[in-house]
Nucleic acid binder design. Sequence first.
DNA 1: CGCCAGGTTAGAG
DNA 2: CTCTAACATGGC
Length: 301
Amino acid sequence: MEFIITTPSEFSFDLCAEFLRRSPRELLHQWEDGSVRKLLQLGDKHVLFELREAIGENFVPVEKGILVRVLNGTLDKEEQHQLIQYIRAWFDLDTDLKPFYSKMAGDKLLGNLVQKFHGYRIVGQPDLFESLIWAVLGQQINLAFAYTLKQRFVEQFGSHFEFNGKRYYTFPTPQVVARLTDADLLPLQFSRQKSKYTVTIGQAFANQSIVQGQLATLALADARDALMKIKGVGNWTANYALMKTFRYKDAFPAEDVGVHNAIRILRNAKAKPTVDQVRRLFRKYKGWEAYATLYLWKSLP
DNA sequence: CGCCAGGTTAGAG
DNA sequence: CTCTAACATGGC
């Protein structure tokens, strides 16, 4: 079965797809000649779907869209609705970027970037648990190595679904992760610190001291404080998750070395700004800190 | 080889 | 409250 999701004019499928392709070690979605594939679990059902840009004859009535194809069977009305909501959330399609773009027009740091990468959106992680674990894996190491760790983690402790001889993975569940030990994770080259944080987060979700649906109703500061009660979740990690999962537009990881380097390079400066300087600079992006962060990341080589 | 990497914590001062 | 060492190893 297939259908089309219409997209705002400030949306670039190519730029978002480029983000999804940035590591060959990613197992949670796959890129195949112009389309992205992903396995989603809707209740007990495995749904394998494929997205591509909707253009040409399959697509007359609207200007832009994403063509969605479900590869393994069909969905009922309710399931289709859930899949649409998932995709809209994944690509942040419900955010109106026009105010952001007019606010950034002429901005010293971001003015050029918002033109160059027009339509680029925060490709999210709708699952808070996955978002937090991924942030922990990325703490204080280079991104390439973080992807290596994630690949091993998902291969070992996630589940997979076979389709036409290929494996499609889902992220490990909190119940599984809560029971892991150093003996499971150190061989994957997790540091003791990452191992401990990972399991602690698994436990927080498994014992329901963190419930995504409850946090979703909170104001940014309250949600951040709740997340930071978990050992291993500092300000950077909490804000990263709030930005990628709940899409607070004013969340931003001020400690992020990528943001610091982007600012340094754009200013042609020798030294990176301090965290305080970044916070001060970001005052003028108030309300759009998450998107300012995204475009700064995008500016990095 | 040396420096840096999408940080966080515990402990010292 | 602020400052710092330790974490640990890949990537370049």
